[in-house]
Design a protein around this nucleic acid. Sequence first.
DNA 1: CATGAATGAGGGTTCATTCAT
DNA 2: GATGAATGAACCCTCATTCAT
Lengths: 174, 174, 174, 174
Amino acid sequence: MTHKKQAILDSAQYLIASQGYDATSTRSIAKRAKVSEGLIFRHFENKEGLMQSLLKRGEVTMEEPILNIESLTHPKVIMKHLIGLPFNLNEVQRDFLKIYYPLMFKFKYDQLEFLSRIHDKALAAFKALDYSDPNAEAETFMMILEGAFVYMLLEKSSQPFILFETLLLKYELS
Amino acid sequence: MTHKKQAILDSAQYLIASQGYDATSTRSIAKRAKVSEGLIFRHFENKEGLMQSLLKRGEVTMEEPILNIESLTHPKVIMKHLIGLPFNLNEVQRDFLKIYYPLMFKFKYDQLEFLSRIHDKALAAFKALDYSDPNAEAETFMMILEGAFVYMLLEKSSQPFILFETLLLKYELS
Amino acid sequence: MTHKKQAILDSAQYLIASQGYDATSTRSIAKRAKVSEGLIFRHFENKEGLMQSLLKRGEVTMEEPILNIESLTHPKVIMKHLIGLPFNLNEVQRDFLKIYYPLMFKFKYDQLEFLSRIHDKALAAFKALDYSDPNAEAETFMMILEGAFVYMLLEKSSQPFILFETLLLKYELS
Amino acid sequence: MTHKKQAILDSAQYLIASQGYDATSTRSIAKRAKVSEGLIFRHFENKEGLMQSLLKRGEVTMEEPILNIESLTHPKVIMKHLIGLPFNLNEVQRDFLKIYYPLMFKFKYDQLEFLSRIHDKALAAFKALDYSDPNAEAETFMMILEGAFVYMLLEKSSQPFILFETLLLKYELS
DNA sequence: CATGAATGAGGGTTCATTCAT
DNA sequence: GATGAATGAACCCTCATTCAT
């Protein structure tokens, strides 16, 4: 991966995250990356292909916190960490999700892998905690988490920590 | 409002809801509405203006269920209905929200009025129900509702009713 | 057919005839027609589509001399006129054929209708003149005519009339 | 001449012969030759220069049959062989002519040397055979030969041999 | 009110060519 | 000799928008 290819990916990530895919021209991506427009297509074949690379790279940035959680064993600790996910995003992860969400509204974009891994972990936890209907609980939990992600990405809350704590309370984890 | 203006709005609503704002050309809107492309700009000045009209019209479709809830008085009943909102959308309302959500990711789009009315109603209910921190509860509730809306719009669940019921349980409403 | 659409066709015909299809940009066609580039695509959808229109229009210009010949009855007179075809092209017809021939080398372009009409007429004439193998004669004649067309289009001869007369002699028509 | 330079020429010959000069990119030439794109410009300076090399190389492939004919003395035998030329092309010669002909329509490309050598030989033959106007005959013959070349290159005939024989008859050579 | 011809800017993409390695 | 990253101009085409009718 050359330096310029990196620059293209970074530029695209930034611009698409803030303006959306359609509204971001390859021209503007190239300019921000200080690169000729043609180079984009030598490295990625397509604007669509560039997007795919972006998503692939994005999944990687989500790997670390998930792996971290997957190494845990105590269900209450697991739940605590799962709930914490939307409230502890770094900038790269935020940019990735800002790209990912609008995409889902355009195409019925395939579920990302990390979401299903969260689901599995939550399901196991609910079972361990003897919830009466762990499947329903797990899906509902995913729905709530989705809300938290969106809420955080859109910066709708001025005190996110309170939301986090309230959720913990709801699941009797504090 | 002439018949043709209606047709333009309907066409735009359908296309933008399914493809997104940027990906929907005025040409395709005109074609679907069986109307000349020029007519769009006679009625709306702008593509942006057409969009605004769409959003305004959309808010109206959310009016009815909100008004219905606002006429209620018993806090538990109110909560039940509020939670029910994402699970009882008709097609027009769904299209509207499918337009509205991606928009929020592009611009930090102004909070829609109907959302703040839901918030107010929820806050009052939590107070009436003697929640210890009604403000935190209300905001968390809005976050969860957001998740429900997104979940329903993206058709992520095959059994939405279960999600609804699980939420009711969480708020001790069933 | 508006005035500007005509201008586009004329411009395209001139430029493609002299430079070839690939070497002629839509930009240059528009500029020569004193028309915006976008207009080309409102009228023709494609550069390819423009080309098709050109060919269709070109076939029409060949109609007249063919019809003229088809009205004749005496086989020797018919042959004389058929041989005369390549030597009596007007500018529009020349431009058309200059477009048509290179095209055949790129795609195996479908035989043009007017060529097969010439073939039919020649075949009938050879039969009437009691040639021993009229089919072979007709095809050979078409081949020779092809040579004459190419020779004339490329302006390889300084005295085309002599070529015409020599051909007449070959078919004992003078 | 290195192996790779050969590969470039072969690749270019094949692609340009089947798609035309403008439609053949240096990139595709390089890919087919399994060579880096840059190498083309180390060996040929230009795409245009590559083309020139191709034409030069092409002329050589026409040398052999011409030399063969030039060694003949009896005019009737000479004519027979000249007429046979278009009907006995090998693949390399065909590719060369497929490149050469469309080129003539773009530029008024300089007469190829081998064509004028054919002309000279034909003229001498017509003189030896006491044709009344050998110059007119020679030029007409060249025109007919052009037709035969085009006909064969475009594969318009399913039975080329018959065309050959019919031409022989026309010149009283069988 | 309504049409559809027309525009010019900008879209994604391909091109021949250069250059450091 | 050979590579492949890199360029910038040009490519075909689509866009939102205007205007005469």
